[in-house]
Simulated assay, not measured.
Amino acid sequence: MAMTLRTDDELDRALAALAAAEGTSRQEIIRRAVLERYERSGHAARVQESTGRLIDRWGDVLHRLGTV
């Protein structure tokens, strides 16, 4: 699937530098960045969901421990 990406000078320099340093294309740099961001956002949601469940279960104990 084709897509056009508009860049400014700063982004263009950063892409060129990363691509040269990693020996890959600018397209691959962008692809990796998007996939890494997607993975991190999914992880953050899972952590938040898990935290909510733990607080529901152990919140009263944690509160008591924090006030002792």
Results as ranks from 00 to 15, higher is better:
residue 2 A to E: 11
residue 46 R to N: 04
residue 50 S to E: 11
residue 8 D to N: 15
residue 39 E to W: 05
residue 39 E to I: 06
residue 40 R to F: 10
residue 52 G to K: 03
residue 31 R to T: 06
residue 21 A to D: 15
residue 65 L to P: 02
residue 68 V to F: 07
residue 61 V to S: 07
residue 33 A to G: 11
residue 15 L to I: 11
residue 4 T to F: 00
residue 45 A to H: 09
residue 19 A to D: 04
residue 29 I to R: 01
residue 5 L to K: 01
residue 65 L to S: 03
residue 19 A to M: 06
residue 12 D to S: 15
residue 2 A to P: 08
residue 19 A to N: 02
residue 38 Y to M: 14
residue 43 H to M: 13
residue 43 H to K: 15
residue 33 A to W: 08
residue 2 A to M: 10
residue 61 V to P: 01
residue 41 S to F: 09
residue 1 M to Q: 08
residue 38 Y to C: 05
residue 46 R to W: 02
residue 16 A to R: 13
residue 9 D to N: 11
residue 49 E to S: 14
residue 26 R to M: 13
residue 2 A to G: 10
residue 62 L to K: 01
residue 27 Q to P: 00
residue 19 A to W: 07
residue 5 L to S: 01
residue 19 A to V: 03
residue 42 G to V: 02
residue 25 S to F: 08
residue 48 Q to R: 14
residue 30 I to L: 14
residue 17 A to K: 15
residue 48 Q to P: 00
residue 9 D to P: 08
residue 21 A to G: 06
residue 13 R to S: 09
residue 24 T to C: 11
residue 6 R to A: 10
residue 38 Y to D: 13
residue 26 R to F: 07
residue 49 E to T: 09
residue 44 A to V: 14
residue 49 E to D: 12
residue 66 G to F: 01
residue 13 R to C: 03
residue 30 I to S: 02
residue 50 S to W: 03
residue 64 R to Y: 05
residue 21 A to E: 15
residue 39 E to Q: 10
residue 32 R to Y: 05
residue 39 E to A: 13
residue 11 L to T: 13
residue 64 R to I: 00
residue 64 R to M: 07
residue 17 A to G: 01
residue 31 R to S: 10
residue 20 A to Y: 08
residue 60 D to M: 09
residue 43 H to L: 15
residue 28 E to D: 13
residue 15 L to W: 05
residue 44 A to M: 13
residue 38 Y to R: 11
residue 37 R to N: 08
residue 17 A to E: 11
residue 48 Q to I: 08
residue 23 G to F: 09
residue 8 D to C: 09
residue 21 A to Y: 05
residue 61 V to I: 14
residue 12 D to Y: 12
residue 10 E to P: 02
residue 49 E to A: 14
residue 8 D to S: 09
residue 29 I to T: 03
residue 23 G to S: 05
residue 9 D to W: 04
residue 64 R to C: 01
residue 65 L to H: 09
residue 42 G to T: 01
residue 44 A to F: 09
residue 44 A to W: 06
residue 3 M to P: 01
residue 52 G to W: 01
residue 55 I to A: 02
residue 9 D to I: 09
residue 59 G to Y: 05
residue 51 T to E: 08
residue 50 S to K: 07
residue 4 T to G: 02
residue 51 T to W: 05
residue 59 G to W: 04
residue 23 G to N: 05
residue 28 E to V: 02
residue 45 A to S: 08
residue 32 R to G: 03
residue 12 D to N: 15
residue 15 L to M: 06
residue 1 M to E: 11
residue 25 S to W: 07
residue 50 S to A: 13
residue 60 D to Q: 12
residue 65 L to F: 06
residue 66 G to I: 00
residue 17 A to W: 08
residue 5 L to R: 02
residue 55 I to P: 00
residue 62 L to F: 13
residue 52 G to T: 05
residue 40 R to A: 10
residue 52 G to E: 04
residue 41 S to N: 09
residue 58 W to H: 15
residue 37 R to T: 07
residue 59 G to F: 07
residue 48 Q to H: 06
residue 18 L to F: 14
residue 59 G to K: 05
residue 10 E to W: 07
